[in-house]
Write a protein that binds this DNA or RNA. Structure first.
Lengths: 347, 347
DNA sequence: CTGAAAGCGCTTACAG
DNA sequence: CTGAAAGCGCTTACAG
């Protein structure tokens, strides 16, 4: 394989000049530049990443650190949980265009070897930037190691504001408000709400958004149920809300899995959706697209956030020590109206 | 960050000895080895991948080359096509255990810049092994470049036997035979078959397997329909087969998308599945798990094949020039019986 | 606008 | 069982 020396010899210049041309640096005569390009092309020369990384300050690597257990579970389940696929889609494109490589690294969240694992990743790979996904995005040890290594990082969907890095998250509260507004606009007045796992900040934000919208419309919530983001808890919530007398005409579950469970509960009770009750979810999961009827839900801008993260990291806009003003509530959630919501009492 | 020199100094040995210990090479006294380990641990030393790669013959990188257009489409569609997720699951685990890193590279199949793109990938990354997925797995230019670079490669689901590399594929014919046997065992005699895109070898293998089983049971196929692996063609095939008089009691579509289309056609015609007609697919796609009723299908051992591929590559068992005897029909397909098939004329 | 020298952090090939 | 030397293919820092 051709090296920088071969190209330099063929073009009749020094390797430094070849380096300048390959990196599109200034201060090379147009004619020289062309000669180098021609030599590189004829020799089919491509710079070696390891050498560039070792000699220089860039590795041309962007890594995503994802929770090992969760990710493996999702891959195994094959229920089409496509969070990671969306991250890959968003991050891969800008990386490719900039000559970077994107790789996914599994991290054993909250286990003994995690510190070693992450240290090794950082020292071995020396990535130019790291994208963190929940729950790693809030892991103090990982954040500390990242800062220690001086590696810029972007935190996707963080719960805690401390910990540095560029923080990118959807405005859960505004999104929940938006969905509630949608239900009210359809004519619903008695609306039930199923909360998620209380340990997650998103649960509280979504509930607050719901309550804000209800209050803004002068409505009292029909009923609240505390679930835990699982299908099973959605069934339970649905049963409780729908078996009473003054049952809500609409239920907003704060994630799709619970909404799907809720639909199952409605089916058990002989209720038809959306004729007897409208049901809305949150996440735009794969399952929401396969349910019958298809589920009205909220889509997080995962692809867009991952793309922004990669771009910011590549551009070097993320200082590893940025602590203030690096929080960005991504406004662009998308309400995805499908067939599980309609006007109350209507087919 | 600590380097090999720091460790050597602290342990009172040469860097060569540190290198030996870090790579678990023989010929180091147990006591020396321990001293080095202690020094490495106390300095939180982790070898730099770029330096290892540049100096040595290994990059500790395994790459999967996947079709850019197809992959982006799957990521975008979010219908839960989890082929790539299964590859990642299978390949990531052995890589992780062996200290390798796995990365996915998009390749613009059959476009002008492809040659440059792949050359660059090979020269820049110098991966120790490459896993190819369809349709890249049969791309002559990619195969030629791989051989030229001396990079070992594994071809997943190849259609053409030439092209070298370790070839791993499911025995489509045996699998189709297995599914047909299943339908016959349930009591079906008039069985329809929907073929896939004729340009793909898998279409022919699956059809042949079906016909073999039918012949072995002394049955004539009720009808054949040539589809193209799309949902739409499944609808068309279903309509044609199910609207006639002597309609089949079971239809075997050679992939899940067509089987799902076929189910939709049955629904249009007022037929209930599996009471009026049994329907079977092929792939165990995400959609097959979300359909109602859930689809009986065949599962390809993608995870297992990817794992085997990664292991073989890491172990250096794949010689880049292996041409004979490197073809392996993976026998372990799995028949996944679900609710869309039953005894004929039975609920 | 161009180049000579040094060095990044390791492994290889060899010597003892 | 251990180490000194050379070199992998680039970029950095500097000189001109």
């Amino acid at each position: 394989m051709a090296t920088i020396y071969d190209v330099a010899a063929q073009a009749g210049v020094s390797i430094k000049t070849v380096s300048r041309v390959m990196n599109a640096e200034p201060n090379v005569r147009a004619e020289t530049r062309e000669r180098v390009h021609a030599a590189a092309a004829s020799l089919n020369y491509h710079p070696n990443l390891s050498a560039r990384s070792l000699a220089g300050s860039k590795s041309y690597l962007i890594a995503a650190f994802v929770d090992a257990k969760l990710t493996i579970e999702h891959w195994r389940n094959e229920r089409g949980t496509d969070y990671l696929a969306r991250i890959q889609l968003g991050a891969t494109m800008p990386c490719r265009e900039a000559g970077y490589h994107f790789l996914v690294e599994l991290v054993d969240h909250n286990t003994a070897p995690m510190r070693q694992e992450v240290s090794n990743l950082l020292a071995a790979l020396k990535p130019d930037g790291v994208i963190l996904t929940p729950p790693i995005t809030d892991n103090d040890i990982v954040l500390e190691l990242l800062r220690g290594a001086g590696t810029p990082y972007v935190r996707l969907g963080p719960e805690q504001p401390d910990g540095g890095g560029l923080r990118l998250r959807m405005d859960d509260r505004a999104a929940a408000r938006g969905m509630t507004d949608h239900l009210v606009a359809l004519g619903h007045r008695r609306i039930g709400f199923i909360e998620g796992e209380q340990r997650y900040g998103s649960s509280h934000s979504r509930r607050d958004g719901f309550l804000e919208s209800m209050a803004a419309h002068g409505l009292k919530s029909a009923c609240m149920f505390v679930g835990d983001y699982t299908y099973q808890s959605g069934i339970e919530g649905g049963r409780e809300m729908l078996s009473g007398n003054a049952r809500p005409t609409a239920i907003f579950a704060s994630n799709d899995d619970m909404a799907l469970g809720c639909m199952a509960a409605a089916g058990e009770l002989g209720l038809e959706i959306p004729r007897d009750v409208s049901i809305a979810g949150f996440d735009d999961s794969t399952g929401s697209r396969f349910s019958r009827p298809q589920l009205t839900t909220l889509r997080q801008p995962i692809v867009e956030m991952a793309a922004l993260a990669a771009c910011a990291l590549i551009a070097g806009e993320v200082r590893p020590d940025c602590d203030e003003d690096a929080h960005f509530d991504f406004p662009s959630f998308t309400l995805v109206p499908r067939l599980s919501t309609a006007r109350p009492g209507k087919v």
